[in-house]
């Protein structure tokens, strides 16, 4: 600890006044937050990104609609799963697929789509709903798979956006291929 005398010599030491140090810090913090929020609001007013400020965060919906991809909600996917009316296509790589996936899902990374076209069309003709999914932030594989299959003549592939994470978070059943079941 410093003596009182040295404090006086160096008034710029923050330790000289801890309360003031904190107060000024908080005041600056508030000011910086306000500046950040103000610039952010101004930026989004000047260059609208198409995202609404509040409300429905299904930000990718409009993009996918342009590409002709139909999304399916988790609730709908879950009820089709329970009625055994859905065929799930896991578009991720085999590694992640092995660690866990929706029970009964087929592992089809988008480049493999053409090898599966006949099988999937057969499911389609049986009246099943084909649902592709991926995982994680903006993972495009589910959409890519749907597009690839559509190019090859499969008409009705729906996409469960961020499917794996949402499926797990909802506590729905999982299947693993490493001889463990969870």
């Amino acid at each position: 600890m410093e003596k009182k005398g040295t404090k006086k010599d160096r008034p710029s030491m923050p330790a000289a006044s801890p309360t003031k140090h904190t107060t000024v810090g908080f005041r600056q913090a508030m000011l910086l937050l306000l500046v950040g929020i103000a610039i952010g609001m101004a930026y989004h007013l000047v260059t609208p990104s198409g995202l609404p400020w509040f409300g429905n965060p299904e930000s990718s919906s409009s993009l996918n609609a342009e590409k002709g991809i139909e999304e399916i909600s988790l609730d709908d996917a879950w009820s089709l799963y329970r009625q055994k009316e859905a065929v799930f296509l896991d578009a991720r790589g085999p590694d992640t697929f092995w660690k866990g996936h929706i029970p009964g899902a087929l592992n089809i990374p988008p480049p493999d789509a053409e090898n599966w076209v006949d099988d999937i069309r057969a499911f389609e003709n049986d009246g099943k709903t084909i649902i592709s999914y991926c995982d994680g932030v903006a993972c495009p594989l589910g959409e890519e798979l749907a597009l690839n299959l559509r190019e090859k003549g499969v008409q009705s592939v729906k996409v469960l956006i961020n499917g794996w994470s949402r499926w797990r978070a909802a506590g729905h059943p999982e299947e693993r291929l490493d001889n463990e079941s969870s």
Partner: peptide, 13 residues
């Protein structure tokens, strides 16, 4: 959305 639009600017500031 509001967090996605404002948080980056707070980080920049």
């Amino acid at each position: 959305n509001v967090i996605a639009m404002l948080l980056p600017w707070i980080e920049i500031v």
